[in-house]
Design a protein around this nucleic acid. Structure first.
Lengths: 233, 233
DNA sequence: CTAATAAATTATACCGGTACAATTATCAGA
DNA sequence: TCTGATAATTGTACCGGTATAATTTATTAG
């Protein structure tokens, strides 16, 4: 593990352990440097990471302070690896509706830089939180990258498998969101009424080398759709 | 202006000028260093900035590549200073419904670290894009920080005034989002029907020193609600 | 005691270096 | 032509240094 990540984790842990609140002043840079026996730039990098994560904010000439957000149960849109982490401690499950190899829709092909003749894994599932529907999810995976999938993998986390089992490295993602009204089929899956609001998130996930490997379209139950972002200056 | 920001701007301009597309390889680090007569770390910082902005991605051992997103007209959720920039070239306007000094609601007071006895500037406006309603916006400004506002300022950009006129420095923000159904009053302002979907974004803006100065609640017309995020690894 | 001024504190910008990891290009051997 | 080893390329981690900008604290003058 990288030193600056390790340090960032330990500083975050330091805050957690003590239950420090928004605005609480942390030890100064020099102290952290001594504590971790690292260089100034390494510590700066660790702190920058925490700043982007929304854990701290730094004020030149003044110090390093704790940053917190008050509301719980909101899904973070900046940590890109799904909502596993934000809804930790919440009872999540999922039901797989479909799983097969097929030709992509034109939309999916376009987003994955494929032709409609190429093969993709298609996954459709409903996710639940405390027995209530959270979202309906349709995913297309480029089969030449994600070479194998089965029901077991799909019931757990595909991302964990892609990183662990296949040894691929996830780089970045584009996420497009909009709001609309549910059609009859979607409403059925989510246990809502046709015409009710829906929040749709379309994501394209890329490997570190820039190849798109996953196009997903997630339709959220509007009752459970709570998101947050902690933006930096 | 900071050197690494200047460099970042110029690299972005380099990409724009040539109309480079996703995946196009840019000159290597060493070349940029020579071109700008700067140190490696300064260039690294500039490139890191562009990476976070979603303009490029870097692949170790390979090079620096252009990143683009295909869809236009989407509002970015990561650049925190309003949607002025994303909707550049779109015909925006706004109508001020209310503007006065008052006591905050309990919700606003809580988010601004005030009591319900403190004074706030309250602003309510409707924003339009191409003659269509974009959103209904209610803002509360801590009056001890934002000491003065008038109709003229509010019709343009309050943020520009806060930064320019008052010389304050905006640091970071928390943004909470959810989806629900419009009530009669909101529907009236947005020209929609009661019960139609709404996308609500509640934002708290902080100065660099961590003081919250603005709490805003924005209700978007669902037809115009298109957002995107370019997340990093 | 107050307000202006100076000094100390503290994070950030920028420099330039070594070592290393990931990728891509080259080359030898079959 | 392919495969596997080797070398070159290229971005990233980490070091430690000087200078500077913003803030806080201490000092001084009235």
């Amino acid at each position: 593990m990288l030193k600056y990540q390790q340090i960032a984790d330990e500083i975050e842990q330091y805050i957690e352990e003590r239950g420090l609140q928004q605005g609480h002043k942390l030890p100064v840079l020099e102290e952290w440097i001594a504590r971790f026996d690292a260089s100034k730039s390494t510590l700066t990098k660790a702190l920058e990471l925490l700043e982007r994560k929304g854990v701290i904010f730094q004020v030149r000439g003044s110090g390093i302070f704790v940053r917190r957000h008050k509301r719980k149960g909101y899904i973070s849109l900046t940590s890109n690896q799904g909502f596993k982490k934000d809804l930790e401690g919440f009872k999540l499950s999922s039901k797989v509706l479909e799983l097969d190899v097929r030709k992509p829709t034109r939309e999916a092909a376009s987003n994955l830089n494929l032709t409609v003749e190429d093969d993709v894994y298609y996954v459709k599932r409903v996710r639940y939180i405390y027995e209530q529907t959270l979202c309906l999810e349709e995913s297309y995976f480029n089969k030449s990258i994600v070479t194998y999938l089965n029901r077991e993998i799909v019931e757990e986390s595909v991302f964990e498998y892609v990183k662990g089992g296949l040894g691929l490295k996830v780089g970045f993602s584009d996420q497009y969101m909009h709001v609309d009204k549910l059609n009859a089929e979607e409403a059925g899956h989510l246990g809502l009424q046709k015409g009710d609001p829906k929040f749709v998130m379309e994501s394209i996930f890329y490997l570190t080398n820039g190849q798109p490997f996953d196009f997903s379209k997630v339709t959220y139950n509007y009752v459970q759709s709570q998101f947050f972002i902690q933006a930096g200056g």
